[in-house]
């Protein structure tokens, strides 16, 4: 009953990690046989500063995505946690972005943000900001991708916070209200303490998800301008399919996996003792 599943999981999840470690110790262009080079790939990634730059960029991107999508998701959950058809429709609209493909979202925002004909660029010109290169200015592009990612995933964080809000007892809020607590005091002292485990879950889940960002980069900027949006996974892809450097890509894969494992540990640690919620 279990055999076939274990076999497939081992082939496509466990064995690849072992293969990545092995390949990371070689120089391999996919065409000629791999050559053993020891730790040269890792040494090169560290010495050239490429690894630090990649991790730094990815971390910065992830932190912007996590903080914005969490706070926006929480605010929307609080605002939309009430009956009514209109409110239900807005909830669906926000969540729909989570359901459509990354390609759809990326193309849509490329057009909205197009520096010449885009409607946002027209808005920026009207505000006297001049020509804003949302995707072509190296200082802006990474932030743009982060904001587009926030648009895509905030629906998820909102839904999870809405689930969490169902566990906040109504009579507790009413009691606080009778004691003269205002909306902010009720949130601060009743709702938020009860939502904290949910927030930890949303935070770590979206942190892990933003570390895996690829589609939005590939479609919108291809890592540019001047590497401003070359995040970890895109760099791995580029090494294999553009530069044919499987060894170096494997080394990056190993580092990426180690980072993700660290983040997952952090998540499990934050989630411990939550009655099976993980």
């Amino acid at each position: 009953m279990l055999g076939p599943s274990v076999l497939v999981l081992a082939t496509f999840f466990v064995a690849p990690l072992a293969l990545a470690v092995r390949d990371s110790l070689t120089s391999w262009d996919l065409l000629s046989p791999p050559v053993y080079v020891g730790l040269a790939n890792y040494a090169r990634l560290v010495a050239s500063g490429e690894l630090a730059a990649l991790v730094g960029r990815t971390l910065q991107f992830a932190l912007v995505v996590v903080s914005l999508s969490m706070s926006l998701g929480l605010a929307l959950a609080l605002a939309l946690n009430r009956p009514g058809r209109l409110v239900a429709f807005v909830r669906s609209a926000v969540f729909s972005a989570y359901v459509v493909s990354w390609v759809s979202v990326a193309l849509l925002w490329m057009w909205l943000l197009d520096a010449d004909q885009g409607v946002f660029a027209a808005g920026a010109r009207a505000l006297g900001l001049g020509r804003v290169g949302f995707l072509t200015d190296p200082g802006v592009a990474r932030l743009t991708l982060a904001v587009v990612t926030v648009w895509k995933i905030t629906g998820f964080s909102m839904v999870v916070f809405l689930v969490g809000l169902q566990d906040v007892p109504r009579d507790l809020l009413e009691a606080a209200s009778l004691d003269g607590a205002g909306a902010w005091a009720r949130f601060r002292h009743v709702t938020w303490p009860l939502l904290r485990p949910t927030a930890a879950f949303v935070g770590t889940t979206s942190l892990i998800a933003s570390f895996q960002a690829f589609d939005v980069v590939r479609v919108m900027t291809q890592g540019g301008p001047v590497k401003a949006t070359t995040l970890l996974v895109y760099a791995i892809y580029e090494q294999v399919f553009l530069d044919l450097r499987v060894g170096r890509a494997s080394a990056l894969t190993v580092v990426f996996f180690a980072l993700l494992s660290g983040l997952s540990m952090l998540q499990l640690w934050l989630m411990r003792g939550r009655g099976g919620r993980a």
Binding site: F12, P16, L17, L19, A20, D23, Q212, I236, S250, T253
Partner: peptide
């Protein structure tokens, strides 16, 4: 994203 390189090879 962590397995695509070896799975591809």
């Amino acid at each position: 994203q962590a397995t695509f390189v070896p799975v591809f090879t």
